[in-house]
Design a protein around this nucleic acid. Sequence first.
DNA 1: TCAATGCGTATGTCCGGACAATCGGACTAC
DNA 2: GTAGTCCGATTGTCCGGACATACGCATTGA
Lengths: 245, 245
Amino acid sequence: MQLDLRVDRSSPVPLYFQLSQQLEAAIEHGALTPGSLLGNEIELAARLGLSRPTVRQAIQSLVDKGLLVRRRGVGTQVVHSQVKRPLELSSLYDDLEAAGQRPATSVLVNTVVPATAGVAAALGVPEGDDVQRIERLRLAHGEPMAYLCNHLPSGLLDLDTAELEATGLYRMMRSAGITLHSARQSIGARAATAAEAERLTEAEGAPLLTMQRTTFDDTGRAVEFGDHIYRPSRYSFEFQLLVRP
Amino acid sequence: MQLDLRVDRSSPVPLYFQLSQQLEAAIEHGALTPGSLLGNEIELAARLGLSRPTVRQAIQSLVDKGLLVRRRGVGTQVVHSQVKRPLELSSLYDDLEAAGQRPATSVLVNTVVPATAGVAAALGVPEGDDVQRIERLRLAHGEPMAYLCNHLPSGLLDLDTAELEATGLYRMMRSAGITLHSARQSIGARAATAAEAERLTEAEGAPLLTMQRTTFDDTGRAVEFGDHIYRPSRYSFEFQLLVRP
DNA sequence: TCAATGCGTATGTCCGGACAATCGGACTAC
DNA sequence: GTAGTCCGATTGTCCGGACATACGCATTGA
């Protein structure tokens, strides 16, 4: 059966985007089965009344997402694998919500402090400058799951404690008009100190998963530096990697 | 000063690729300073004797890498940040070699075994089928750094022990004509068992960093399943994330 | 039988042009 | 003085076509 693809030329949504979304949806719910050929671009373009570059742009975006594979002389195939989503710059809050965990946050500290050497270096501000410091405890099912310590340049964002508990930090930054661009991340492990153990209801010396992250906006400014620890029995980092061809 | 950009039309290397490489090199060694405008596409195309789509394709590839930011009505800017490389599907061996660590590998086990339930599920083969099992110890500076246990579908690759010690598994797969496409990865932490502790010269109960990974080729076949443990004092996962715009 | 050749097909690269959407600043009107 | 408007600049989208290149398969030849 032929796939029912249509584009709406009166819509402000770009044509290539309309097409790529429809193709992605078709792959998602199985109308396009893994391994099947997509049919050649020329014919597809003719069928939709689009030009070939537009169709190629749509297909290319799905190739970049890892959903399709092109082979010269052969055609474009749906990749069959458990590929769900590539690694994205997401927040713990979003991750949990996507997993249907209904996360709860309790803000322990929300204040302005002078930047220590480490924080200053990460954020690219002079040592001793005012920075916003927040400490949060993330709970899932009433159990502590992670302890999050973040620093932000002062004045970047109005960090209302109540809002911080109701939503995530990243969501607040985005809705404040900050366009996140990239992040440098480091994941490790170490033994819990006595203080950390108590906060997370673990034993002293228990293994902890650690993550440090510096996030940049599209002007290259550091907008956030986070130092997080997770209970490995409750959380692990799951993600998908794509090979850069 | 104007940037010295040139393309060689007699070269088999695509023009857009030549251009993007030159731009990337210019950014790398500072000829294009962060925050500077790149000059508009039309003029750049005219200067190089290229069409605008070609120039756009070159620029787009650098935007995808996170090196440039385009702003409608403004121009294309070099992003100024510590962005070096986005997350790639790389092997521990490559990582270490890039860091100048001269890694050493000792192959502990290289044999064929029937697949356990877990391995079978990860590789998508029937339980009990023959699979290749390799266990390796990775050393840096003479110290054990990681214990790597991998399973591969039987017959996929000729795994010579000597070659395995001289190079990495991924490199062997690539040179065998397998085109890696994506991988699903999970990073966690836990306490060392007595056996693990001994292999890595740690104490029993010491925190360990763990990673499981299933790698797929471009046909969607699982080609490798790895279960690795790292000494957190010697290794952590460092990477860069880009926001999907 | 098996290897080399040729051919059809599909994607890869490239061109030149057109118009739309958005940003930032200058100008104008109140 | 301030807010709104216009305008130039620049990227975003889209078109239609042309030729190159690689893969798979059938045909041909030794």
